[in-house]
């Protein structure tokens, strides 16, 4: 699987953390996460955010909710200009602040990932795969060409498998 960060599709990680990915894609992504620390870290952070959101439960609406609501609105209309001005800056109860903070964090992270233009992974999948046996054959050819470089007075240091190539050293 190609790294979602590398192909600039971090939404796949977000969907995985949200549990929205289909089982096959989730299985492939999990296999990728095992080898990609950058993606693993993002998926872990996302999962933490979702866990915090999942853990929040809205309190049940009380039977006299409407009455109290309209009472508060009426009270608000009677506030002084100074109270109206400072009201948004008053401390918020924790049970209200937590889900809002988590949601803001989630949106911030999604925004950063979607805007990120450079790969976070240490090395990128190239898209082109060279087989190991092809590499080995090329190394053999390079060693041959290196040994007979036509300019060295003595044989250069071999990078071939056979240490006996160091025949002049």
């Amino acid at each position: 699987m190609i790294c979602p960060i590398q192909i600039r599709k971090p939404e796949m990680l977000l969907a995985y953390a949200a549990g929205d990915l289909d089982p096959e894609s989730a299985r492939l992504l999990e296999a990728h996460l095992a080898g990609c620390s950058a993606c693993r870290e993002i998926a872990k952070d996302q999962a933490t955010v979702w866990k915090a959101l999942d853990g929040w439960e809205a309190p049940p609406v009380s039977p006299d909710f409407n009455r109290r609501l309209y009472g508060r609105i009426d009270q608000g209309l009677q506030l002084s200009w100074w109270e109206r001005l400072t009201r948004p800056f008053r401390p918020m109860p924790l049970r209200q602040a937590l889900p809002l903070t988590a949601t803001a964090g989630l949106l911030l992270m999604a925004g950063l990932l979607l805007q990120h233009t450079r790969p976070l992974a240490p090395a990128a999948p190239s898209g082109e795969i060279v087989r190991a046996d092809q590499v080995e054959r090329t190394l053999d050819d390079l060693d041959l060409l290196h040994q007979f470089n036509g300019t060295a007075a003595t044989a250069p240091r071999s990078f071939g498998p056979d240490r006996s190539c160091f025949w002049y050293s």
Binding site: E128, A132, V135
Partner: peptide, 27 residues
Amino acid sequence: ENPIDRWNRMSPEERERELAKLPPARA
């Protein structure tokens, strides 16, 4: 570019996946 140059451009995961197809000593 020769195949070694292209190999160097592959990600470590891709390189290890290819080398894993060979006996450990050869890899």
